[in-house]
């Protein structure tokens, strides 16, 4: 069972990290472009509504990123993790007090200086909240990855379902729940530390 837990952790970590690497810069790029933000967030929202099993099935027929195994599973998990990180990045950056924006401009900050020194640090708790939501959701969604040979704790759950073996289902479901709780707790702690450190 231990290798399956590690596999599950790897799927969650890799998907959340990759989604963060894509969604945070994208959120920064669109946060002050309202029209583009609307389109990008709507597209990510639509992707989120596709049922996970349907998406995994669809990916089987796609060359390069699709097929069966951990790779298409990772692609699907990344797609699902994008939206919360993207929306929270945009919301965090947009919520920076306009008076601070004016103060930064009046000091002669360049847009990139303002982003690095003011916007990102102040938006950090909201962005971390997005990463937390994405990571916790991914723990659950990653269980479905077993349907296309993605591995992880879903292997035990699917095997249990096939054999109508409740104990086997629980052997997969309980560690997944524990991972979700620990992930949520750890990232909540970081989020709270940031919020407490930088209240307005």
């Amino acid at each position: 069972m231990f290798p399956l837990i590690l596999q599950h952790l790897w799927l969650v970590f890799a998907a959340t990290a990759a989604a963060s690497c894509l969604a945070i810069p994208a959120g920064v790029a669109i946060s002050h472009r309202p029209l583009m933000a609307r389109w990008v967030l709507a597209s990510a929202g639509v992707a989120q509504t596709i049922p996970s099993l349907a998406l995994l099935g669809f990916l089987i027929s796609i060359p390069v990123i699709g097929g069966i195994g951990p790779r298409p599973a990772l692609v699907a998990l990344i797609v699902y993790a994008l939206l919360p990180i993207l929306t929270n990045t945009v919301a965090g950056l947009r919520n920076v007090d306009p008076a601070l924006r004016e103060a930064g401009l009046a000091l002669g900050m360049t847009p990139s200086q303002f982003l690095r020194k003011v916007e990102l640090p102040l938006a950090a708790p909201t962005i971390v909240a997005g990463v937390r939501i994405a990571a916790v959701t991914t723990v659950g969604t990653a269980a479905i990855a077993a349907a296309i040979g993605g591995g992880g704790l879903g292997v035990l759950i699917f095997r249990g379902l096939a054999n109508v073996d409740t104990r086997e289902i629980l052997r997969g479901a309980l560690p997944a729940a524990a991972i979700a709780i620990i992930t949520d707790g750890g990232l909540s702690w970081i989020e709270n530390r940031l919020s407490r450190f930088w209240p307005s």
Binding site: A99, L100, A103, G104, K117, P121, L122, W198, P199, S200
Partner: peptide, 13 residues
């Protein structure tokens, strides 16, 4: 140019 605002505009972090 130095700029002083009514609501001080200090960066909270």
């Amino acid at each position: 140019i130095g700029y002083v605002m009514q609501e001080h505009g200090l960066f909270p972090h």
